[in-house]
Protein backbone atom coordinates (compact mmCIF):
# COMPACT_ATOMS: atom_id res chain seq x y z
CA UNK A 1 0.00 0.00 0.00
CA UNK A 2 1.38 3.40 -0.97
CA UNK A 3 1.12 6.08 1.65
CA UNK A 4 2.70 9.06 -0.06
CA UNK A 5 3.56 9.14 -3.70
CA UNK A 6 4.51 11.90 -6.06
CA UNK A 7 5.10 12.01 -9.79
CA UNK A 8 7.08 14.76 -11.52
CA UNK A 9 6.11 17.10 -8.74
CA UNK A 10 6.83 20.75 -9.46
CA UNK A 11 6.24 23.73 -7.23
CA UNK A 12 6.83 27.26 -8.42
CA UNK A 13 6.25 30.57 -6.78
CA UNK A 14 6.41 34.06 -8.16
CA UNK A 15 9.53 36.12 -7.84
CA UNK A 16 8.67 39.77 -7.37
CA UNK A 17 10.65 42.99 -7.61
CA UNK A 18 10.41 45.80 -5.08
CA UNK A 19 7.16 47.15 -6.50
CA UNK A 20 5.61 43.70 -6.31
CA UNK A 21 5.59 43.02 -10.04
CA UNK A 22 6.15 39.44 -11.05
CA UNK A 23 9.59 39.21 -12.63
CA UNK A 24 9.86 35.48 -12.96
CA UNK A 25 9.23 32.14 -11.35
CA UNK A 26 11.24 30.33 -8.72
CA UNK A 27 11.18 26.58 -8.73
CA UNK A 28 11.34 25.27 -5.19
CA UNK A 29 10.59 21.72 -6.29
CA UNK A 30 11.58 20.48 -9.69
CA UNK A 31 10.36 17.11 -10.88
CA UNK A 32 10.35 15.11 -7.68
CA UNK A 33 9.29 11.46 -7.65
CA UNK A 34 8.91 9.85 -4.27
CA UNK A 35 7.33 6.65 -3.20
CA UNK A 36 6.63 5.92 0.44
CA UNK A 37 4.91 2.72 1.53
CA UNK A 38 2.61 2.36 4.49
CA UNK A 39 4.50 1.72 7.74
CA UNK A 40 7.83 3.03 6.47
CA UNK A 41 10.15 5.37 8.32
CA UNK A 42 11.45 7.72 5.68
CA UNK A 43 13.89 10.58 6.15
CA UNK A 44 14.22 13.51 3.81
CA UNK A 45 17.52 15.31 4.15
CA UNK A 46 18.67 18.56 2.68
CA UNK A 47 20.25 21.86 3.60
CA UNK A 48 18.19 24.96 4.35
CA UNK A 49 16.54 26.06 1.13
CA UNK A 50 16.90 22.71 -0.63
CA UNK A 51 13.13 22.38 -1.00
CA UNK A 52 12.60 19.71 1.65
CA UNK A 53 10.11 21.73 3.70
CA UNK A 54 8.22 22.76 0.60
CA UNK A 55 7.93 19.09 -0.30
CA UNK A 56 6.70 18.28 3.19
CA UNK A 57 3.97 20.90 2.94
CA UNK A 58 2.66 19.14 -0.16
CA UNK A 59 2.03 16.00 1.86
CA UNK A 60 -0.50 17.87 3.94
CA UNK A 61 -2.01 19.88 1.10
CA UNK A 62 -0.84 23.13 2.66
CA UNK A 63 0.75 23.61 -0.73
CA UNK A 64 -0.59 22.12 -3.93
CA UNK A 65 1.66 21.27 -6.85
CA UNK A 66 2.08 23.66 -9.76
CA UNK A 67 2.85 20.62 -11.90
CA UNK A 68 2.78 16.86 -11.50
CA UNK A 69 0.78 15.07 -8.84
CA UNK A 70 0.99 14.22 -5.17
CA UNK A 71 -1.07 11.39 -3.72
CA UNK A 72 -1.55 10.87 -0.03
CA UNK A 73 -3.17 7.59 0.92
CA UNK A 74 -4.33 7.31 -2.69
CA UNK A 75 -5.93 10.76 -2.74
CA UNK A 76 -4.88 13.47 -5.13
CA UNK A 77 -3.98 16.49 -2.98
CA UNK A 78 -5.15 18.85 -5.75
CA UNK A 79 -8.72 17.66 -5.32
CA UNK A 80 -10.47 20.23 -3.08
CA UNK A 81 -13.04 17.63 -2.03
CA UNK A 82 -10.28 15.50 -0.53
CA UNK A 83 -8.59 18.34 1.33
CA UNK A 84 -9.75 17.43 4.84
CA UNK A 85 -9.23 13.73 4.25
CA UNK A 86 -5.66 14.37 3.13
CA UNK A 87 -4.97 16.52 6.17
CA UNK A 88 -6.52 13.97 8.47
CA UNK A 89 -4.52 11.08 7.03
CA UNK A 90 -1.18 12.89 7.01
CA UNK A 91 -0.70 14.89 10.19
CA UNK A 92 2.05 17.45 10.35
CA UNK A 93 4.45 18.62 13.05
CA UNK A 94 6.31 21.86 12.40
CA UNK A 95 9.65 23.34 13.37
CA UNK A 96 8.80 26.05 15.85
CA UNK A 97 7.30 24.51 18.98
CA UNK A 98 5.70 27.78 20.09
CA UNK A 99 3.95 28.57 16.84
CA UNK A 100 1.95 25.38 16.46
CA UNK A 101 0.36 25.04 19.86
CA UNK A 102 -3.05 26.66 19.75
CA UNK A 103 -4.52 25.79 23.12
CA UNK A 104 -3.70 27.57 26.36
CA UNK A 105 -3.82 24.25 28.18
CA UNK A 106 -1.98 21.13 26.99
CA UNK A 107 -5.03 18.85 26.80
CA UNK A 108 -7.12 21.46 25.00
CA UNK A 109 -4.42 21.79 22.39
CA UNK A 110 -4.37 18.06 21.78
CA UNK A 111 -8.16 18.14 21.49
CA UNK A 112 -8.04 20.87 18.84
CA UNK A 113 -7.66 18.51 15.86
CA UNK A 114 -10.45 16.11 16.87
CA UNK A 115 -12.72 19.10 17.59
CA UNK A 116 -12.18 20.29 14.03
CA UNK A 117 -12.97 16.83 12.72
CA UNK A 118 -16.27 16.85 14.58
CA UNK A 119 -15.39 13.91 16.83
CA UNK A 120 -17.94 13.43 19.67
CA UNK A 121 -16.90 14.82 23.05
CA UNK A 122 -16.41 11.49 24.87
CA UNK A 123 -14.29 10.20 22.02
CA UNK A 124 -12.17 13.40 22.07
CA UNK A 125 -11.34 12.86 25.73
CA UNK A 126 -10.34 9.27 25.05
CA UNK A 127 -8.14 10.27 22.14
CA UNK A 128 -6.52 13.12 24.05
CA UNK A 129 -5.68 10.81 26.90
CA UNK A 130 -4.32 8.09 24.64
CA UNK A 131 -2.23 10.51 22.60
CA UNK A 132 -0.75 12.24 25.60
CA UNK A 133 0.04 8.86 27.07
CA UNK A 134 1.85 7.69 23.96
CA UNK A 135 4.15 10.73 23.97
CA UNK A 136 4.61 10.52 27.74
CA UNK A 137 3.00 13.87 28.49
CA UNK A 138 -0.14 12.76 30.31
CA UNK A 139 0.97 14.21 33.64
CA UNK A 140 1.27 17.64 32.04
CA UNK A 141 -2.28 17.62 30.68
CA UNK A 142 -3.52 20.62 32.61
CA UNK A 143 -0.32 22.66 32.32
CA UNK A 144 0.12 25.79 30.28
CA UNK A 145 2.25 25.09 27.18
CA UNK A 146 4.32 28.19 27.98
CA UNK A 147 5.82 26.44 30.98
CA UNK A 148 7.11 23.42 29.03
CA UNK A 149 10.56 22.84 27.56
CA UNK A 150 11.07 22.82 23.79
CA UNK A 151 11.18 19.03 23.65
CA UNK A 152 8.00 18.74 25.69
CA UNK A 153 6.21 21.23 23.47
CA UNK A 154 7.12 19.19 20.41
CA UNK A 155 5.80 16.06 22.11
CA UNK A 156 2.53 17.88 22.76
CA UNK A 157 2.46 18.85 19.09
CA UNK A 158 2.99 15.21 18.13
CA UNK A 159 0.15 14.20 20.48
CA UNK A 160 -2.02 16.82 18.82
CA UNK A 161 -1.44 15.13 15.48
CA UNK A 162 -1.90 11.62 16.89
CA UNK A 163 -5.29 12.56 18.29
CA UNK A 164 -6.48 12.98 14.72
CA UNK A 165 -5.60 9.31 14.15
CA UNK A 166 -3.56 9.84 11.00
CA UNK A 167 -2.01 7.04 8.99
CA UNK A 168 1.11 9.05 8.47
CA UNK A 169 2.98 11.70 10.42
CA UNK A 170 5.12 14.24 8.62
CA UNK A 171 7.65 15.94 10.88
CA UNK A 172 9.07 19.06 9.28
CA UNK A 173 12.38 19.73 11.07
CA UNK A 174 10.87 19.05 14.49
CA UNK A 175 14.23 19.27 16.24
CA UNK A 176 15.86 22.24 14.49
CA UNK A 177 15.14 24.63 17.35
CA UNK A 178 15.81 22.26 20.24
CA UNK A 179 18.85 21.58 22.41
CA UNK A 180 20.49 18.12 22.24
CA UNK A 181 18.38 16.72 25.06
CA UNK A 182 15.16 18.01 23.53
CA UNK A 183 16.24 16.56 20.21
CA UNK A 184 16.83 13.13 21.72
CA UNK A 185 13.50 13.34 23.55
CA UNK A 186 11.59 13.98 20.31
CA UNK A 187 13.42 11.36 18.27
CA UNK A 188 12.91 8.79 21.00
CA UNK A 189 9.20 9.60 21.04
CA UNK A 190 8.98 9.16 17.28
CA UNK A 191 10.76 5.81 17.44
CA UNK A 192 8.41 4.64 20.19
CA UNK A 193 5.42 5.56 18.07
CA UNK A 194 6.78 3.69 15.12
CA UNK A 195 7.23 0.61 17.23
CA UNK A 196 3.86 0.66 18.89
CA UNK A 197 1.50 2.25 16.42
CA UNK A 198 2.97 1.16 13.08
CA UNK A 199 2.28 4.58 11.74
CA UNK A 200 4.17 5.83 8.68
CA UNK A 201 6.76 8.44 9.67
CA UNK A 202 8.31 10.98 7.35
CA UNK A 203 11.07 12.95 9.03
CA UNK A 204 12.47 16.07 7.42
CA UNK A 205 15.75 17.12 8.97
CA UNK A 206 19.33 18.16 8.48
CA UNK A 207 20.62 16.32 11.53
CA UNK A 208 22.21 13.16 10.22
CA UNK A 209 22.21 11.32 13.56
CA UNK A 210 18.42 11.28 13.46
CA UNK A 211 18.09 9.29 10.26
CA UNK A 212 20.30 6.26 10.93
CA UNK A 213 17.26 4.14 11.81
CA UNK A 214 15.26 5.15 8.76
CA UNK A 215 14.15 2.58 6.17
CA UNK A 216 14.78 4.99 3.32
CA UNK A 217 16.60 8.25 2.98
CA UNK A 218 16.01 10.86 0.32
CA UNK A 219 18.50 13.69 -0.10
CA UNK A 220 17.29 16.91 -1.68
CA UNK A 221 19.23 19.71 -3.25
CA UNK A 222 17.99 22.61 -5.30
CA UNK A 223 14.49 21.18 -5.59
CA UNK A 224 15.65 17.78 -6.84
CA UNK A 225 16.02 14.38 -5.23
CA UNK A 226 19.73 13.83 -5.59
CA UNK A 227 20.29 10.70 -3.52
CA UNK A 228 18.05 7.86 -2.47
CA UNK A 229 18.82 4.69 -0.56
CA UNK A 230 19.07 3.19 2.89
CA UNK A 231 21.11 5.09 5.50
CA UNK A 232 24.15 2.88 5.03
CA UNK A 233 24.27 3.52 1.30
CA UNK A 234 23.78 7.22 1.77
CA UNK A 235 26.34 7.62 4.53
CA UNK A 236 29.01 5.81 2.61
CA UNK A 237 29.02 8.70 0.13
CA UNK A 238 30.60 11.25 2.44
CA UNK A 239 32.07 13.51 -0.23
CA UNK A 240 28.81 13.73 -2.12
CA UNK A 241 26.88 14.61 1.04
CA UNK A 242 29.33 17.41 1.78
CA UNK A 243 28.71 18.78 -1.68
CA UNK A 244 25.05 19.04 -0.76
CA UNK A 245 25.97 21.08 2.34
CA UNK A 246 25.32 18.11 4.62
CA UNK A 247 27.42 16.30 7.13
CA UNK A 248 27.82 12.79 8.48
CA UNK A 249 27.94 11.72 12.14
CA UNK A 250 31.40 11.88 13.69
CA UNK A 251 31.66 8.10 13.79
CA UNK A 252 31.04 7.81 10.04
CA UNK A 253 33.52 10.59 9.46
CA UNK A 254 36.15 8.87 11.55
CA UNK A 255 35.63 5.55 9.78
CA UNK A 256 35.97 7.31 6.44
CA UNK A 257 39.18 9.03 7.58
CA UNK A 258 40.60 5.68 8.71
CA UNK A 259 39.66 4.02 5.44
CA UNK A 260 41.46 6.70 3.52
CA UNK A 261 44.48 5.97 5.66
CA UNK A 262 44.44 2.38 4.54
CA UNK A 263 42.46 0.61 7.28
CA UNK A 264 40.19 -2.09 5.85
CA UNK A 265 36.86 -0.96 7.26
CA UNK A 266 33.43 -1.49 5.74
CA UNK A 267 31.86 1.65 4.29
CA UNK A 268 28.80 3.41 5.72
CA UNK A 269 29.42 2.80 9.40
CA UNK A 270 26.63 4.50 11.36
CA UNK A 271 27.03 3.65 15.01
CA UNK A 272 29.81 3.77 17.60
CA UNK A 273 29.50 0.05 18.37
CA UNK A 274 29.86 -0.86 14.71
CA UNK A 275 33.13 1.03 14.38
CA UNK A 276 34.52 -0.32 17.63
CA UNK A 277 33.58 -3.84 16.57
CA UNK A 278 35.14 -3.43 13.13
CA UNK A 279 38.34 -1.99 14.56
CA UNK A 280 38.65 -4.78 17.11
CA UNK A 281 38.19 -7.39 14.37
CA UNK A 282 40.87 -5.66 12.38
CA UNK A 283 43.18 -5.55 15.38
CA UNK A 284 42.87 -9.28 16.01
CA UNK A 285 43.44 -10.11 12.38
CA UNK A 286 46.65 -8.12 12.12
Amino acid sequence: MKMVQSEKLIFEYEKRDEEGNVIGMNRAIDGVDIDISEGDFVAILGHNGSGKSTLAKHMNAILVPSGGTMWVDGRDTKDPLELWNVRQSAGMVFQNPDNQIIGTVVEEDVGFGPENLGVPTDEIWKRVEDSLKSVGMLEYRSNSPNKLSGGQKQRVAIAGVLAMEPKCIVLDEPTAMLDPNGRKEVIRTVQELRRRKKVTVILITHYMEEVIDADHVYVMDNGHIVMHGNPREIFSRVEELKRYRLDVPQVTMLAEELRQNGLQLPSGILKTEELVEALCQLNWNT
Partner: peptide
Amino acid sequence: AAPQVTYIMHALKARGL
Protein backbone atom coordinates in the same frame (compact mmCIF):
# COMPACT_ATOMS: atom_id res chain seq x y z
CA ALA B 1 28.09 14.57 26.91
CA ALA B 2 31.54 14.41 25.40
CA PRO B 3 32.03 14.43 21.62
CA GLN B 4 31.15 11.14 19.96
CA VAL B 5 34.80 10.31 19.22
CA THR B 6 35.69 10.45 22.90
CA TYR B 7 33.25 7.60 23.49
CA ILE B 8 34.74 5.64 20.60
CA MET B 9 38.22 5.96 22.09
CA HIS B 10 37.04 4.86 25.51
CA ALA B 11 35.23 1.87 23.98
CA LEU B 12 38.32 0.88 22.03
CA LYS B 13 40.46 1.12 25.14
CA ALA B 14 37.96 -1.03 27.03
CA ARG B 15 38.21 -3.64 24.28
CA GLY B 16 41.96 -3.81 24.78
CA LEU B 17 43.22 -1.52 22.04
